[in-house]
Simulated assay, not measured.
Amino acid sequence: MKRSGPLLTLLGGLVLALVLLSLNATTGTRATSSSTTNDPPPASASPSPSPSPSPTKTSPSPSPTPAPPADADYAGRTDDDSAAIAVSLRDGRAVAYFCDGRDQESWLKGDVEDDGGMNLTSKNGGELNGTLKGGSVSGTVDIGGHEYAFTADRTVKPSGLYRATANVRGAEVDGGWIVLPDGRQVGILKRDGEPSAAPEIDPETGAVTIDGQRLTARPVTP
Score class of each variant (00 low, 15 high):
residue 18 L to V: 11
residue 91 D to K: 12
residue 28 G to S: 15
residue 6 P to N: 06
residue 54 S to K: 05
residue 152 A to H: 00
residue 15 V to L: 15
residue 43 A to M: 14
residue 115 D to F: 07
residue 53 P to D: 00
residue 82 S to A: 14
residue 200 E to N: 09
residue 54 S to A: 05
residue 172 E to G: 10
residue 136 S to L: 12
residue 21 L to N: 05
residue 144 G to L: 02
residue 143 I to R: 02
residue 147 E to I: 15
residue 26 T to H: 13
residue 173 V to Q: 10
residue 108 L to I: 00
residue 125 G to M: 13
residue 147 E to C: 10
residue 120 L to D: 02
residue 84 A to S: 14
residue 175 G to Y: 05
residue 155 T to H: 07
residue 45 A to W: 15
residue 180 L to A: 08
residue 88 S to L: 05
residue 36 T to I: 09
residue 141 V to N: 03
residue 134 G to I: 03
residue 96 A to Y: 00
residue 196 S to G: 13
residue 140 T to M: 02
residue 220 V to L: 01
residue 207 A to S: 07
residue 213 Q to R: 14
residue 60 P to E: 05
residue 37 T to F: 08
residue 32 T to G: 14
residue 212 G to Y: 11
residue 196 S to A: 14
residue 16 L to I: 07
residue 142 D to N: 09
residue 162 Y to W: 00
residue 128 L to A: 00
residue 173 V to M: 11
residue 136 S to N: 15
residue 128 L to M: 01
residue 216 T to Y: 14
residue 137 V to S: 04
residue 49 P to S: 07
residue 40 P to G: 08
residue 53 P to M: 00
residue 67 A to E: 13
residue 34 S to F: 11
residue 16 L to S: 05
residue 199 P to G: 02
residue 139 G to V: 06
residue 107 W to G: 09
residue 155 T to Q: 06
residue 123 K to V: 11
residue 205 T to I: 10
residue 146 H to A: 06
residue 148 Y to S: 07
residue 103 D to L: 12
residue 43 A to K: 13
residue 99 C to T: 07
residue 98 F to T: 03
residue 5 G to T: 11
residue 17 A to H: 02
residue 5 G to K: 09
residue 9 T to S: 15
residue 1 M to K: 03
residue 219 P to S: 03
residue 26 T to V: 13
residue 19 V to Q: 09
residue 126 G to Q: 04
residue 218 R to H: 09
residue 132 L to G: 03
residue 79 D to M: 11
residue 49 P to A: 08
residue 32 T to Q: 15
residue 63 S to G: 05
residue 24 N to V: 15
residue 192 D to S: 04
residue 98 F to C: 03
residue 170 G to H: 04
residue 208 V to C: 06
residue 179 V to F: 01
residue 21 L to T: 09
residue 1 M to F: 04
residue 113 E to V: 10
residue 46 S to L: 13
residue 86 A to G: 02
residue 100 D to H: 07
residue 74 Y to S: 02
residue 156 V to S: 15
residue 91 D to R: 11
residue 64 P to E: 07
residue 131 T to V: 13
residue 31 A to D: 15
residue 167 N to H: 14
residue 45 A to E: 15
residue 25 A to H: 07
residue 30 R to C: 11
residue 212 G to S: 08
residue 193 G to D: 00
residue 58 T to Q: 03
residue 66 P to V: 01
residue 3 R to G: 10
residue 49 P to W: 06
residue 152 A to F: 00
residue 28 G to N: 14
residue 83 A to E: 04
residue 151 T to K: 09
residue 173 V to I: 15
residue 208 V to D: 06
residue 9 T to R: 13
residue 177 W to C: 02
residue 135 G to A: 11
residue 134 G to P: 03
residue 51 P to S: 00
residue 197 A to G: 14
residue 188 I to D: 06
residue 135 G to K: 12
residue 6 P to G: 08
residue 156 V to D: 15
residue 30 R to A: 12
residue 90 R to L: 10
residue 56 T to K: 01
residue 18 L to H: 08
residue 113 E to Y: 10
residue 15 V to W: 12
residue 168 V to C: 06
residue 36 T to R: 10
residue 4 S to A: 09
residue 66 P to E: 03
residue 159 S to V: 01
